[in-house]
Design a protein around this nucleic acid. Structure first.
Length: 663
RNA sequence: AGCGAGGUAGGGUAGUCAGGAUAUCCCGACGGGCUCAUAACCCGUAGACCGAUGGUUCAAAUCCAUCCCUCGCUACCA
């Protein structure tokens, strides 16, 4: 025990192209609970995380937003940093993978891997978009499956036969971002000899600590053949591959290396040595989402091993989050945003922490619903826990002005010790729900004790005896404050202060739970919690339902068209030669438009927005193969395109010849 | 399709590896009690043929076989 290396806990890095939601929290909150507890169990713990800034999706999102990838990353980095703080998730260091420390550590590790002979070059056939001027990862390529003819993604026929597609196999590949036809180009890339690590990984995974889902998954993965791993990308944004200005390392190389870099950033600022955490025997514990297990159990240990670093001690993988029993999905509306939907509504972080930690075991799927949320908060947090604390302190204050001076009964101490022991075991086994349950059981024990002894009756006949009961109950309150801190830190602190303490509960070891509470005066206690009102729950739920309904509507109203269907439309530019109102109509204009090959008469509903004279001479956009129609008795041979209710005309930015095809 | 995880009362769970006699605990429902306490607390009751079928055994939620269902993953998406 004495020479145990320090415990380093990390969380999977949030990707900086979207805001924080419940899915994120499912990993961070338990990790935070684990860290808070282990610290107060006397362990030396460092807790680091950071934002993941590289990769194509961030480049694309940044382009869409018209800002640099760095600016986009900083924006979301700040967002996550603030959100985590609001949720009580406190990292010692929350860095960025785009900061110098990660760049430096990544290049050092890649160089070491090269030196050790684990990297080689190979030509790769990769999709390239000539318009976006970049190589396209598979998810940005769409086309037709060569086997079944259905629309397919770059790597897989996801809607048709389900076959895996090799690069270059897909037909009619187009860039998903701009729709331009993609071409395949040969490109020199670097590969990591992952296949050579199989013999290392098998025994490593047999002994790795953490949750069974991570371990089982990884072992299953290795049973098959391990391919070597392409670790470079042709991209501007990222960590440059050493010696190659045209290549960056794959984001999944520098992302976990961020864990080391963030450790370095912290140790540098705190005059410590990062090697204690990362070299040789260590206790690196990764908390991650279940979807990135193989990165942390296969790629990452192999990289570390190959570069001569220590390998992770434990991988703790959380289960999925569902909303209203539906798969978590931003596009379908089944999402709960941490800020917009929760914190900004004034709801306490502690409630959500409690829900996330107590719903089910860490590796299973967690269902979120406002109804269940309200029930559990009211019945468990407010009623059982909050009421016990409040009734005890209220009684103590009323009758004794604070904590009376008696001795605490051994039965009470034994009960608390039982709870301490089981919480300790459960948390070390990553069974966070079990630990919360054990704490709640102690609170329930407190209620039973108080109820069956009825000190409020006893006080009428035997004041000393009532004081004894009161003291015992207060001891349980003290234990609860200390124990609940990792789960509900804010609540714990308020409870602690009501007991008459001035300092931070987080500075006390959990073992203080059996240290007798000393005689003290109390201020008037106030209830620890506010109940969730039914209408409040209904409102929050209605918001979610509306979001789902909106998402559905959007889906229904916008059918997907195939490229072929789209190609049926002929859209050309046209020059308006003349315009006059259609008699008896107050909306319609009759236009004569030159579409290059011919002159067309077209009726358009834009009289309220454009005067006839204004229209003449305008370059407009016309659908030219629309079925002709008679509107107000006037023949119309096409349709002028305009945007929105104000019929804002679509006009080519540069003047082009009438009849120019639009694609 | 393959691999992995899972199917125990209305919801969440324990037990399954090392088979055993009334299947655990929490929430919810119902009945009673209490009044220190935020319609809080305490006690009690009901509710599960332990996914299905077949097998091994004196005995199966637990072991074996087959099947059904749910979910996740399948590497150049992060």
């Amino acid at each position: 025990m004495m020479n145990l290396p320090p415990l380093l806990v990390t969380c999977g890095l949030p990707y900086t192209n979207g805001p924080c939601h419940l899915g994120h929290l499912r990993t961070y909150v338990p990790a935070d609970m684990y860290v808070r507890y282990m610290r107060r169990a006397g362990e030396e713990v460092l807790f680091v995380c950071g934002s993941d800034n590289h990769g194509t999706p961030i480049v694309v999102s940044a382009e869409e937003a018209g800002i640099t990838p760095r600016a986009l990353s900083e924006h979301y980095h700040k967002h996550f940093d603030e959100t985590f703080k609001r949720m009580g998730v406190k990292f010692d260091r929350f860095g960025m993978t785009d900061n110098p420390a990660t760049h430096h550590r990544t290049q050092t590790i890649v160089t070491a891997l090269e030196k050790n002979g684990y990297i080689y070059k190979q030509i790769v056939h990769q999709a390239y978009c000539t318009r976006c001027k970049r190589f396209l990862p598979d998810r940005y390529v769409e086309g037709t499956c060569p086997y079944c003819g259905k629309p397919a993604r770059g790597d897989e026929c996801d809607q048709g036969c389900g076959k895996h597609l090799e690069p270059g196999e897909i037909r009619d590949p187009v860039c998903k971002v701009c729709g331009t036809k993609a071409e395949f180009r040969d490109q020199e890339h670097y590969f990591f000899r992952l296949s050579e690590f199989r013999d290392f990984l098998l025994p490593y995974l047999e002994q790795v600590r953490g949750t069974s889902n991570a371990k089982n998954y990884a072992i299953g993965w290795i049973k098959d053949e391990l391919h070597d791993w392409c670790i470079t990308r042709t991209l501007e944004w990222g960590v440059k591959f050493p010696g190659r200005d045209d290549l960056v390392v794959y984001v999944w190389v520098d992302a976990p290396i961020g864990y080391i870099a963030f450790t370095e950033e912290w140790t540098k600022a705190n005059a410590k040595d990062w090697k204690r955490y990362w070299c040789g025997q260590n206790r690196v514990t990764h908390f991650i989402g279940g979807d990135i297990i193989y990165h942390h159990t296969i790629f990452w240990p192999a990289l570390l091993k190959g570069a001569g670093y220590g390998v992770p001690h434990a991988v703790v993988a959380s289960g999925m989050v569902k909303v209203d029993d539906h798969k978590f999905s931003k596009s379908r509306g089944y999402v709960v945003w941490t800020n917009d939907d929760y914190l900004d509504k004034g709801l306490p972080a502690d409630y959500l922490r409690y829900y996330l930690l107590s719903y089910t075991s860490h590796t299973k799927e967690l269902n979120f619903s406002w109804k269940v949320f309200g029930e559990r908060i009211n019945n468990e947090v407010v009623n059982i826990f909050g009421n016990f604390v409040y009734r005890t302190l209220f009684f103590a204050h009323k009758e004794f002005k604070g904590t009376p001076p008696n001795i605490v009964d051994p039965v009470i101490t034994v009960e608390i010790e039982k709870c301490l022991a089981s919480v300790d075991q459960l948390i070390r086994d990553y069974e966070f729900k079990g630990a919360v349950d054990a704490i709640m059981t102690l609170a329930a024990f407190g209620n039973t004790y108080f109820q069956t002894n009825a000190p409020w009756k006893m006080i009428k006949t035997d004041r000393a005896e009532a004081a004894r009961m009161c003291k015992n109950s207060i001891q349980i309150v003290k234990a609860l404050a200390l124990l609940i801190e990792p789960v509900m830190p804010d609540t714990a602190q308020r409870c602690w202060q009501m007991l008459g303490y001035e300092d931070a509960v987080a500075n006390h070891p959990v073992s203080d739970a059996v240290v007798p509470v000393s005689e003290a005066l109390m201020r008037q206690p106030v209830p620890l919690f506010t109940r969730m009102e039914e209408n409040q729950i209904a409102e929050l739920d209605a918001l979610l339902q509306k979001r789902v309904a909106d998402a559905n509507r959007k889906k229904e109203k916008i059918p997907v068209v195939t490229f072929e269907e789209f190609q049926k439309l002929e859209i050309r530019t046209g020059l308006v030669l003349s315009a006059e109102p259609v008699p008896k109509s107050n909306k319609l204009l009759k236009l004569m438009v030159d579409i290059g090959t011919e002159k067309r008469q077209i009726v358009a509903g834009m009289q309220q927005f454009y005067k006839p004279d204004e229209m003449v001479g305008k370059n407009v956009v016309v659908v030219t193969n629309l079925v002709p129609a008679k509107i107000f008795g006037v023949e119309s041979n096409g349709m002028i395109l305009a945007a929105g209710d104000e019929a804002s005309l679509l006009v080519p930015q540069k003047t082009v010849k009438p009849g120019t095809k639009i694609r």
